[in-house]
Amino acid sequence: MFKELDPILHSQLRLAVMSLLIGVKEADFTFIREKTNATAGNLSVQVQKLKDAGYIEVTKQFKDNYPQTTCKITATGIEAFDAYVKALQQYLQAGSS
């Protein structure tokens, strides 16, 4: 039996965001947008979905009079990412055997 892949993570942009955040302590919205080549609108929607799932924390603040949005992965997000990678390995092993 294959575990179904977490639909929140099994989306290119949301998975890209989570993969970036898993390797850093925190990152701002502009950094994530540059690395993922996403549009601000699309990224905003996907970040909100990750936040609603409890996978990331989003902090909005002002720095030098400019709004800054910082994203950070949560413990729930790390667990979900870990489970997602394990499920992927299961599919890959099944595919190679």
């Binding site: 998975l15 890209a16 970036l20 955040l21 390797g23 990152a27 890959l92």
Partner: peptide, 14 residues
């Protein structure tokens, strides 16, 4: 496979 490749690429960038 594409998921794994995406994860690797983003982790390398970070």
């Amino acid at each position: 496979e594409e998921s794994i490749s995406l994860i690797q690429s983003m982790i390398t960038q970070a």
